[in-house]
Design a protein around this nucleic acid. Sequence first.
DNA 1: AAACGCCTGGAAAGCGCTTTCCATCGCCTC
DNA 2: GAGGCGATGGAAAGCGCTTTCCAGGCGTTT
Lengths: 354, 354
Amino acid sequence: MANPRSRTRPAHTAGVTLQQVARQAGVSLATASRVLHGSGARTVGEELRRRVEAAAEELRYVSNAPAQALARATSNVVGLIVHDVADPYFGAIAAGAMRAAREQRLMVMIAATFREPGLELEYLRSLRAQRARAVILAGSGTTDTEATERLAEEIAGFEADGGRVVCIGDRGPDLDTVAMANRSGGGQAVRGLWELGHRRIGVVAGPSELLTVRHRLDGARRALRGLGAPAAPDAVETGDFTREGGRAAAVRLLRARPDLTAVLVLNDVMAAGALAGLRDDLGLAVPDRVSVVGFDDVPFAADLRPALTTVRLPLEAAGEEAVRLLLDPSGDEPRRVDLPAELVLRGSTAPAAG
Amino acid sequence: MANPRSRTRPAHTAGVTLQQVARQAGVSLATASRVLHGSGARTVGEELRRRVEAAAEELRYVSNAPAQALARATSNVVGLIVHDVADPYFGAIAAGAMRAAREQRLMVMIAATFREPGLELEYLRSLRAQRARAVILAGSGTTDTEATERLAEEIAGFEADGGRVVCIGDRGPDLDTVAMANRSGGGQAVRGLWELGHRRIGVVAGPSELLTVRHRLDGARRALRGLGAPAAPDAVETGDFTREGGRAAAVRLLRARPDLTAVLVLNDVMAAGALAGLRDDLGLAVPDRVSVVGFDDVPFAADLRPALTTVRLPLEAAGEEAVRLLLDPSGDEPRRVDLPAELVLRGSTAPAAG
DNA sequence: AAACGCCTGGAAAGCGCTTTCCATCGCCTC
DNA sequence: GAGGCGATGGAAAGCGCTTTCCAGGCGTTT
């Protein structure tokens, strides 16, 4: 029964249709539709309802989502665009988003740009073609104004088509956004180090065109200035948003500025690399010789040795909030959710020597 | 121009259709379709082709994928079902799959079961409703025969509808599968420890109903027997496939069997927990007092301290191969790709004392 | 008892696209 | 110069579903 004759059978041979279910139940197509996918706006008599359900069960009917999407002009698919699924930062956001999606019975279509800027645009367009009901832009915005503009255009098009867009992290004032406290986090990290007695604090940053990096750095600098840090030239090194990028940048930083007693790394993955670089390449003890603070508090941060002091961001919550925002039938006002950052002290920081 | 009047505008107001493009270009719908989405089977004259393209550009036409899916009875969507996107194991697989998907211009719809067994079935069904062209089952199979059977039924249905299914890890002999060398890996880990002089080797395993766990454990046991390990009762503790699960199980194991000099943890995430448990809860030095070997070689394994000796699995490659298999127009023969495991020695293992 | 409204069920018009037929047309072959 | 053929464009029939109308059948209301 229901024997799959051949694995290569042409696709169009397949699939039980609602029409068949209706026929088998002896009712009209309309009635079958109302029973099986009805929005509750119309009731169907007990007897017919039973018959339709029995027929569907017997024929092993599976509804055809594309057809429904076409007829209804709306789908239950949401898109999620990230830089890299393997990065724990995005993994956590995705996990939150998917948990919320499940509650709302949404399917999520995920796209990874692998940090290629052009791909974000391309995927947004594909998602638009898929008639996704909404999309979440989880990656950071950039300072590249041309790219930003083209993206804004595509977003406008998407919304004109009836879709919704929410950004995780600021991208523009008229977009729904879930913002994490990057500035505040940068500030907290600096103040935490300051309280431990550190006065010469360096920063390992990610690519400077990323808004996220900008904001974190900005928060750190502002705090430094506010505290009246010695007016030395900024000690900032930039690297890729990867472990190796962090390692190389940290090594460069401490070679150039051996006087530093602490470094703030603007991303945990980079911080893992920094820890390795300081230890293995430079032979500098953490935290005795130099304290290290990371950013994000990804799951493995606590397992590094020394355990990483870091700025915790509610990543999963951000993913969940984003989905919530998508469904929320907003008026014309763009929505905004602000999520806090919190410094978590662990073993990679210690009072400044002396 | 293309002014999004209101963010809440009903969806059906929206969208430029092919029909409109055709009209604007002064050609028939058929011609427009052939120009814009043609499979190359038919050629369209230079002049008309130009006009259609210009019209599409001018009207900012975006094709409607659900409508195409309906008309063509096939889509460019593939499903990917994982246990947990935030787990680096699945993160790596997903990254590989998405990279391959991008090359093939496929969109991937991802579903996370959060390790709830029933959800796998449910999502497979949803993916079937979406008329996904194929799905990748990335999570481990289980020994629960009833669940397995119901899944097999759903898979058969999916294939009868013209879809393809690829499993990562064995699920059944008649399914396309990408298999990683779990047994061999378990064996290699044990032999590695043996060569270091360890004779009393314990195992921290994940949930025993998971096939992956079974295979890894099986490989380890077989190696142990082959090497003529002392016929003591097996020292195996089981825990959740999480950091905390690994921590608790490792603590239990070493409390019950303080004579062990080495433990193989069947998953890196659990191994991170085990390292913490041995150090913080039991005060046992790794690797001096007890050596630890993990499994998977997820990215952070090398950053743990001591760096984790582990069995490396080509996770990304598995994801890529899975997608490749999906597209490969197989005959009726189920395909199979075998991927090797390799023991990577790092700091968490040392020669047995004495 | 006539008129009204409500509740159910069905017919049928799409939703946006692909693809199969036809119809042309210019060109080549014998 | 008639018959054929390949290349090109269009008409129209769906793909599987939702939803708007309509048509009856009842129970109420005056």
